[in-house]
Computed example of a mutant assay.
Amino acid sequence: MTDGNETGAAPRDGNLVEVRDLKVHFPITRGVIFDRVVGHVKAVDGVDLSIPRGRTYGLVGESGCGKSTLGRALLQLTPPTSGEVSFDGVELTRLAPNRMREMRRRMQMIFQDPMSSLDPRQNVESILVEGLQAHGIGADREERRRIISKTLDAVGLPKWALSRYPHEFSGGQRQRIGIARALVLGPDLVVADEPVSALDVSIQAQVVNLLDELQTELGLTYLVIAHDLAVVRHISDTVGVMYLGALVEEAPSDRLYSEPLHPYTRALMSAVPVPDPEVEDRRERILLAGDLPSPANPPAGCRFHTRCPWAQPTRCAEERPVLRPIGASRVACHWAEEIASGQLRPHGVTPSIVRPEGEGATPHVVSAPSEPGSFV
């Protein structure tokens, strides 16, 4: 392997991360010693995205769509099958192992389960000092302890926590330890994989606010992977929606939640409860037909067409849509404009929009009978 671009760093105010046509395919093997490849699971299949320096990119989608694999591939924890990942102007996929090790100091990860991601045999000081020793940070033990103490203070943990073990903390405190482990090396990018999914709702708010404060204070760049749409909306500047290994929509956070354009995004938004009884009673959830297709054998054409209420018989089944700009969004749908305008009806219903009053309120779809898959 050869080194990538090690000197041509990107401008300090540009994109910190740029991903181009990233693919991660896992082989399916058979045979007595599993030496015969019979197919591939296309966990990530052609993703393009950019994350500006100091901003937060939220990634949402149902389980199995490839969100976590994308995050791990971005950090090169899972080797990409093909594509490019540029970090601050350095192409990571072509770096030699020793150079990649140096870059890891600037890219850290907060793992999903705060308990299983911490070694139960190590106390907090041992957990946090491990990264400093691996990267040669700090001249001696005292200097490393000062760095650790400062990081603990930043995440709101007392200094007595240094001698305690993970099982002695609550879930929220353990997640703060995980955040401290990511921050102690002074990274530029943090990939947070479901950072609050294992926590109680009240603790979720504390951790989300902490991440927000740390970003402002330290100038961090985040990739936040989550199922909770409310969490993503609160913390993200830009949101990407994944389905079956690919991005189907990307938009500024407020735009995505107020005007979802892709049918899959509309279905996700319709599942979010509305704190208005009248609107909640009148609206109808968009229920997707069928099961999620296998990533080992995705449908031809648009991957969502087998479950899409707006799918058309020929084009959707034969031609894969590209992620194209529509206003401030990027959408991978052949009929996004027709769906948004109401010109194209979903199968069995005519959509209309109920717009709740109040700032930040999200529109929701209600329905009336119509001809399947027809144009108005």
Score class of each variant (00 low, 15 high):
166 P>T: 05
374 S>N: 03
24 V>K: 09
187 P>A: 12
343 Q>I: 12
318 E>Q: 15
69 T>Y: 04
291 D>Y: 07
319 E>S: 14
347 H>E: 13
58 G>Q: 03
92 L>T: 09
310 W>S: 03
185 L>H: 03
169 F>W: 11
27 P>M: 09
338 E>T: 03
138 G>W: 13
371 E>L: 07
291 D>H: 14
127 I>H: 00
261 L>E: 07
217 E>D: 15
279 V>I: 15
7 T>N: 14
66 G>Y: 04
250 E>H: 00
308 C>D: 05
215 Q>G: 11
228 D>Q: 07
12 R>Q: 14
307 R>K: 11
43 A>V: 11
75 L>N: 09
230 A>N: 12
197 S>K: 02
327 G>D: 10
204 Q>T: 04
74 L>T: 15
1 M>D: 09
252 P>H: 05
77 L>G: 04
48 D>G: 07
4 G>F: 05
167 H>G: 09
19 V>Q: 06
243 Y>P: 06
27 P>E: 08
56 T>G: 04
112 Q>M: 09
298 P>Y: 04
101 R>L: 14
70 L>P: 03
246 A>G: 03
175 Q>D: 11
174 R>M: 10
195 P>G: 12
31 G>K: 10
317 A>F: 03
118 L>D: 06
166 P>Y: 01
36 R>C: 00
330 R>P: 00
149 S>T: 12
316 C>H: 03
41 V>C: 07
5 N>C: 00
334 H>D: 13
374 S>E: 04
188 D>Y: 05
314 T>Q: 13
157 L>A: 12
232 V>W: 01
108 Q>C: 08
81 T>W: 09
211 L>P: 02
170 S>W: 03
142 E>Q: 14
358 G>M: 10
226 A>N: 13
314 T>F: 06
163 S>A: 14
186 G>F: 11
371 E>Y: 00
140 D>W: 05
343 Q>V: 14
194 E>I: 05
303 R>L: 03
205 A>P: 04
34 F>I: 00
344 L>C: 10
52 P>I: 10
206 Q>G: 05
95 L>A: 03
88 D>N: 15
161 A>Q: 09
131 G>D: 07
352 S>I: 09
375 F>D: 04
